[in-house]
Design a protein around this nucleic acid. Structure first.
Lengths: 331, 331
DNA sequence: CACACATATGGTACCGGTACCAAAAGGCGC
DNA sequence: GCGCCTTTTGGTACCGGTACCATATGTGTG
């Protein structure tokens, strides 16, 4: 099944079939009809692989995220997929499982598919990879974090550090002084929030009561148990900043089991503003990032670039919003 | 940058370069080294598009899911992606947004990429699509639901109906008699659970107190509000079967706000056993489906098929497990 | 040492589209 | 009717790999 077969049946040249598919207006309506009928009759589905090779336009974008298990990233992917599909692109995805090594290998693999753009989560640290990306000459969009020194081409995201600082301002503003911090171990992107946490405390001449890095995989560091352990060891703690809403949810449940009032005994704040955070009891103070919009904007940049435009802004800061809810009501 | 360039630099024929990449053992070690050095020096990345066209093996699998927003499906995708990558395949994804129309269009688009297999969520209803899939002659794996009449080729999943029946047996066994049902509107896959709900009640000569289909998008049918409305209108209700854990979580929070004891005033059961369900207070009775495993097995079938094997079983029922927790403790 | 045979490498055509240019057909003014 | 320009269609080569077969080189045996 090929253009040639269709062309034969319709009594035209292969090239005309190609035109019917790609630039229908350039074919006389009656010819077009004849070709369309032949396509229909044969159940012909154009081979995009051949098309990609010949036209040097793959209409493929590949995206790498740390994990699809985290709803934050799947939101981004959804924003990407929706917008790209509307522009006739397809999305190849890879999950790096938070590993820089897997990420590097994946980037090279992906480049083999000759995508027109590649979407990466966070910074590009390896020089080898940066070089390969530049040599490929394709659009590179880095999403999520906006770390100045590490941007290869374009970036769409928000300032992780500033967001965490804003949350600390909120907590300190509410009068909390004995603060703890929790983040999933290995989450590179939480690191900056931890730095912000420390520095904000230092500015007020305060010290963390604890900084815990529980694991989702190692049962010895189960987030719930770890939270309880830390609070019991540091009972003076009056608020905990969790680097992700999921952790904060677990902390709320742990408090319920223990009979610790939230807020009252302990205030809790999260990051990411998952849908559940507005509904949970008590509702969770969090930092809202418009994930879907990050994906949508990234796709937009890609489509614009493909259309030959140089987008005005190479770095788009979509900002964040502190959503104040019950879990951090004044003590 | 092409095999020819590399071949020239290494002083061999293009074909030898191809062999170094695909079947290294068929090349004398010293020749191989020379070629590898040339590849390294030029930063050559083989063009998989050309390779696909020429070899008629795209090493691409495409997967369609209703949404990536639902952690259940992203788990499946992750299982797929991990296993496929280990076998040197790439994954193209599409989300159908629960729309049969989008799904059909996507299937055709995807076929254009000449994937070696396509993964679909649930049944194939349109005859046109079924035909196109058969004509493409590729492996079709339907995941999730195992509906007998709708399987094109292979299927990996569980029996939705049986799972819901088992949950009803559990609820009735615990003595609950005045049952309500909730599912997100438009969720095709919840439909069977609803049927099971009704039939199980009918067998006990019972009638549902209510069946509600809230929406995640239409604020007039916000799941939380809808749940409260239904309970207030049908105060005799002593248990609610939610077609997804997410709904059950929202219901728990609604009960907390209203001061309704769970269990006690109302028992709640979910579906899917999200990680949070074990942690929430009260912990949620649910039906566990091993999502990741569904993805893994689907990938396994695909890889086996590609290797020329006909897998023993075309339909793999991975089963389910009723996880009894606090939310349905006896009244 | 000739022969059969395995191993290593090369040459050529082809996968199924499309870019590019040439040619034919149609439209219009004078 | 002729020339000129636009629109429509066709022919050919090529994208960058690999299948297939031919050829060259090495290996063991009687």
């Amino acid at each position: 099944m090929s253009v040639r077969k269709v062309a034969e049946l319709a009594g035209v040249a292969p090239m005309t079939v190609s035109r019917v598919i790609n630039t229908p207006t350039k074919v006389r309506p009656e010819t077009r009809e004849r070709v369309l009928k032949a396509i229909e009759r044969l159940g012909y589905v154009p081979d995009l692989v051949a098309s990609s090779l010949s036209s040097k336009r793959s209409r493929i974008v590949s995206a790498l995220v740390p994990t699809l298990g985290n709803p934050m990233f799947s939101q981004v992917i959804q924003g990407l997929a929706d917008t790209l599909r509307a522009a006739d692109y397809h999305l190849i995805i890879g999950d790096t499982r938070y590993s820089a090594k897997i990420e590097s290998a994946l980037v090279l693999e992906m480049l083999g598919r000759r995508p027109e753009a590649i979407v990466l989560t966070g910074p590009v640290r390896e020089e080898r990879i940066r070089k390969a990306l530049l040599r490929a000459g394709i659009t590179v969009v880095q999403i999520w974090d906006l770390q100045p020194g590490h941007i290869v081409d374009c970036a769409v995201g928000f300032d992780n550090y500033a967001a965490a600082v804003a949350m600390m301002r909120h907590l300190l503003g509410r009068g909390y002084r004995r603060l703890g911090f929790m983040a999933i171990v290995g989450d590179e992107r939480a690191r900056e929030r931890q730095v912000a946490f420390r520095e904000a405390l230092a500015q007020h001449k305060l010290k963390p009561t604890f900084e815990a890095l529980p694991s989702r995989f190692d049962p010895a560091y189960d987030p719930t148990d770890e939270f309880i352990r830390q609070i019991e060891q540091h009972p003076e703690t009056d608020a905990v900043f969790c680097a992700s809403d999921m952790l904060a949810h677990l902390a709320i449940f742990a408090c319920q089991r223990k009979g610790w009032a939230v807020p009252g005994r302990i205030a809790l704040a999260g990051f990411g503003d998952l849908p559940l955070s507005a509904k949970i009891v008590p509702s969770l103070t969090s930092i809202r990032i418009n994930q879907y919009e990050i994906g949508r904007r990234a796709a937009e940049v890609i489509v614009q670039r493909a259309g030959g435009l140089r987008p005005r802004t190479l770095v788009q800061d979509l900002g964040y919003e502190i959503v104040e809810r019950e879990s951090t009501a004044p003590p």
